[in-house]
C-alpha cells in the first residue's frame, strides 16, 4: 500500500504477495509479537539497551524482504516530523550545559533525552513496518479479526484499505482535469477554494460510490459477517520465532535492569 504515498509501482505487496522469512509466518503471531515488542521498547530508557533494540529492528528488516533503503528512507521521513521537537529538547531541559547560544544553554540531559526518544521511535516504527507493514493489508484485517477486534471496525478498515486506491485514482483524475484547465496552486483564495471544491467533489463521489457498493453487496446477500479466505495456522516455526523474539526482549529488559542498578 506504500505506493499510495511514494507514487512507486505497486511492487511491495500485490495480491499473493512475496514470500520471505517473515511473510511466511502466522500474521496473528506477528501482530501480537509486534505489540509486545513496541511496549517493551517504549519501557526501555538506557541508550545502550535502546541501541540494542535498534539493532534487533534492523535485523527484522533484513529478514523481512522489504527493500532495505526504501524502508529506511520512509523511517527517516518520520524523523523529519519530529526533528524540531528533538532539536529543542537540549535547550528546554535543565541540566549540565554543553554550550550556549544567544544566552540559551543546551544541556547534556536534554540531548540524551532527545537521542532516547529518537531511538525508541525509530526502533518501534521499523519493527511495525517490517513485521506488520509487510503484510497484505487484507491479511492484516483478517489477522486483527482473528484476534477478536470488533467485526465492524475490521469491516471499516477493509473498506478503507480497498477504496484508498480507487479514490486516489479519482483524486488524480480530478487533479489532471484541473491542470488541463491551467490551474496552478499558489497562496491565494482561488487555490484554497479550488482545493476545497476538489475535496468536496471527492466526498460527493465517495457517497455516491458507497450507495452503489451497498446495493451490490445487498444483492449478494451481505450480512455483516467476515468470511476468512485462509485459515491461519500456528506452526512450529511461528512458535520458534515468537520464542526467539520474546527471549531477545527479555534480554533487553534484563540489560536495562542491570544498567539501571549499576
Amino acid at each position: 500500500m506504500t505506493y499510495v504515498l511514494t507514487g512507486d509501482d505497486k511492487a511491495i505487496s500485490g495480491f499473493g504477495g512475496f514470500r520471505s522469512a517473515i511473510t511466511s509466518l502466522d500474521p496473528r503471531m506477528r501482530v501480537v509479537v509486534t505489540v509486545l515488542y513496541a511496549i517493551t521498547v517504549v519501557g526501555l530508557s538506557d541508550l545502550r539497551v535502546l541501541s540494542g533494540a535498534m539493532v534487533l529492528s534492523m535485523w527484522l528488516l533484513a529478514i523481512s524482504g522489504l527493500p532495505f533503503q526504501k524502508t529506511l528512507k520512509r523511517m527517516a521521513m518520520m524523523d523529519t516530523f519530529i526533528i524540531f521537537m528533538l532539536v529543542l529538547l537540549p535547550f528546554t531541559m535543565p541540566g549540565t550545559p554543553i554550550f550556549t547560544v544567544w544566552g540559551v544553554s543546551a544541556s547534556w540531559e536534554g540531548l540524551w533525552r532527545a537521542v532516547e526518544i529518537g531511538l525508541t521511535a525509530n526502533a518501534v516504527i521499523l519493527a511495525v513496518m517490517t513485521m506488520v507493514g509487510s503484510m497484505e493489508p487484507v491479511t492484516m484485517g483478517h489477522a486483527l479479526f482473528a484476534l477478536k477486534t470488533p467485526e465492524r471496525l475490521v469491516h471499516l478498515m477493509m473498506f478503507t484499505i480497498r477504496y484508498i486506491d480507487v479514490l486516489r485514482e479519482e483524486y488524480q483524475r480530478l487533479r489532471t482535469s484541473m491542470k488541463l484547465r491551467a490551474f496552478r496552486p499558489g497562496t491565494n483564495w482561488h487555490t484554497y477554494r479550488s482545493y476545497g471544491y476538489l475535496v468536496g467533489m471527492m466526498l460527493v463521489r465517495a457517497i455516491e460510490r458507497s450507495e452503489r457498493i451497498l446495493a451490490a453487496m445487498k444483492c449478494r446477500g451481505f450480512s455483516g459477517r467476515i468470511v476468512l479466505l485462509d485459515e491461519f495456522r500456528l506452526t512450529r516455526t511461528d512458535l520458534a520465532f515468537a520464542a526467539a523474539l520474546c527471549l531477545a526482549m527479555a534480554a533487553l529488559v534484563w540489560a536495562e535492569v542491570v544498567y539501571a542498578a549499576a
Binding site: F159, V166, L167, L203, A206, I207, S210, L214
Partner: peptide, 16 residues
C-alpha cells in the same frame, strides 16, 4: 459501513 469506509478512505487520500 460502506459509506463510512469509502469516506474514511477519501479522508485518507485528502490527507495526502
Amino acid at each position: 459501513i460502506p459509506a463510512a469506509g469509502v469516506l474514511s478512505a477519501s479522508f485518507f487520500v485528502a490527507s495526502l
